[in-house]
């Protein structure tokens, strides 16, 4: 089901006819979608289909060429950076590579949003808050580490702790489980579920990880070449008639790609052969 006539009040976040072009390349092609409050919406799709760009539009880190973005019925894509400040405070954004500030310690990274928006007088309460948020992602005790001394998975968990420090209404996750070991990935999935169940947080998750998708999603939206090709719950997606959707969710290579591989035979015509080259 692809929604067409969407009103700004239809969800906590609404995009209408969102189009984004980089030069000649159309990355998002007239996307319309309403994101429901207190639900987890997962955006799936092959690499380069515009998932991250779409996510960035929701918090106006990117501005659309055409179309509108609404937060609680109010248009936000045309606001100035200053006008966006109170709106962005309601969001938490977890970047793909963590985007931790590498000159700050884990502790300083986590208190960053707090320190920028509030006057801190009770540092003991802040210490306790940081401890609590780090414990949520299983990273308590790492307060004085620098991001450079952490693994990719640890950085991602710290990024989530930082994203939730101001108790946001909406959390946007850009591939939160990519590159993590299966257990840590499941910890992240549980955390997303916990935040949604207990704090009624609205989550928008961009991911490739189908195991994670089935676990956390209330609604799954598939993007392909900048357009929505499937939208619904897990059952709807699993039984979707579109071949591209089925290939993607089952992780199967397409017939065209298979045929191309078969045609090339066992030896690639351009394959490197050491005997064709002289040693230095």
């Amino acid at each position: 089901m692809v929604q067409k006539d969407i009103k700004p009040e239809d969800g906590i976040l609404v995009v209408r006819n969102l189009t984004k072009r980089y030069g000649e390349k159309v990355v998002l092609d007239s996307i319309s979608m309403a994101i429901e409050e207190s639900k987890t919406t997962v955006i799936i799709g092959p690499s380069g289909c515009g998932k991250t760009v779409f996510l960035k539009h929701l918090i106006v880190l990117e501005r659309p060429n055409e179309g509108e973005v609404y937060y609680r019925g109010k248009r936000i894509d045309n606001l100035s950076e200053r006008e966006l400040v109170p709106i962005r405070r309601k969001f938490g954004f977890c970047f793909q590579m963590g985007a931790l500030f590498d000159s700050l310690t884990v502790y300083e990274n986590i208190i960053f949003p707090l320190r920028q928006h509030y006057k801190i007088t009770d540092w003991k309460a802040v210490d306790e808050l940081v401890k609590q948020k780090l414990a949520l992602v299983g990273m308590d005790g790492y307060q004085h580490y620098f991001p450079a001394n952490l693994s990719g998975g640890q950085r991602k968990r710290i990024a989530i702790a930082r994203a939730i420090v101001l108790n946001p209404e909406i959390i946007l996750y850009d591939e939160p489980t990519t590159g993590l070991d299966p257990i840590t990935a499941d910890v992240i999935n549980e955390l997303i579920l916990k935040l949604q169940r207990e704090l009624k947080v609205t989550s928008v998750v961009v991911t490739h990880d189908m195991k994670s998708v089935y676990k956390i999603a209330n609604r799954i939206v598939m993007l392909y070449k900048g357009r929505i090709i499937a939208d619904g719950d897990a059952k709807h997606i699993q039984t979707h008639p579109n071949e591209i959707v089925q290939q993607f969710i089952q992780g199967k290579v397409g017939n065209a790609e298979l045929e191309a591989l078969r045609l090339s035979g066992t030896k690639f015509p351009t394959q490197f052969q050491p005997e064709d080259f002289q040693n230095r």
Partner: peptide
């Protein structure tokens, strides 16, 4: 972008 995303 992370700085910006926190409304700073």
């Amino acid at each position: 972008a992370a700085v910006q995303s926190f409304g700073v």
